[in-house]
Amino acid sequence: MAFDIDRYTETSVSVNWSDLDLEVFRRDPLPESSLRTLRYMADVEYHTVCYTRDLLTTPSHREADVSAFMTMWNREEFWHGEALAAVLAVHDITVDYDALKANRMKLGWKDRLDPIKQSVLGGLVGQDFVAVHMSWGAANEWSAITAYQRMAELEEHPVLAELLRRIAKQEARHVAFYTSQARERLAANTKAQKVTRFALSRFWAPVGSSISTEDDVRHVMTHLMSGPEGRRSARKVDDSISGMPGLAGLTIVQDALDRLGVS
């Protein structure tokens, strides 16, 4: 189904939590390990605008729809970061811009080389690479929804569950955009399918891998994706990804869990 970009931009809002009583976390705080996961999620959300840079190094930025989406998407993700930071703040964990900057500084080489790699790949395969970006984005947004849903289930905390439900609802619109773009570009283009298969199976890693320590990634994946329930969620994301044209059989999320030793 076509994604209605005008409808999306007209209805894009920052996620609201002003009606939620976050003070309940003072009486009923989240456990340490959950806060670590939330902190990771907040970092990923705040970092979204930096990922745009990778998407923009390809011809995809020429397209007005993509550019309109990116503008709203960046802002929605930024506010997801702010919302999660508000929850962390009640637990006396401060996520200010200096802390985020310090985190980004630690990345050093890993992050810095990324746009170069992406641009070279983008240059090699031209427009087909847009299919990779869109499929990649779809995989990340599906992962985000699943992560928030799992977190809500695991914590059984009504206020947190409601906030995460609101965030996940916006992630669902992101999925709709990326999948409609990806499907359109993959359908009837076997070269794009091949390049996308290659890139996803070779390079994809859980969202946040490029901006976090492996310890943090393993913690979050173990927290959210281990055990039979976690595996089932991972499989569901894989099923969605492999349901796109030419991507049948891909199991990139489960492969990533195996690589991290999460079972």
Binding site: T52, T57, S67, T71, Y97, L100, K101
Partner: peptide, 22 residues
Amino acid sequence: ATMAYLRNVLVTATHKDARVTA
């Protein structure tokens, strides 16, 4: 034309400054 500006500045160290990206 904001996305072209973002593309050009975010490939550099500018993307590390969370206050600027915000």
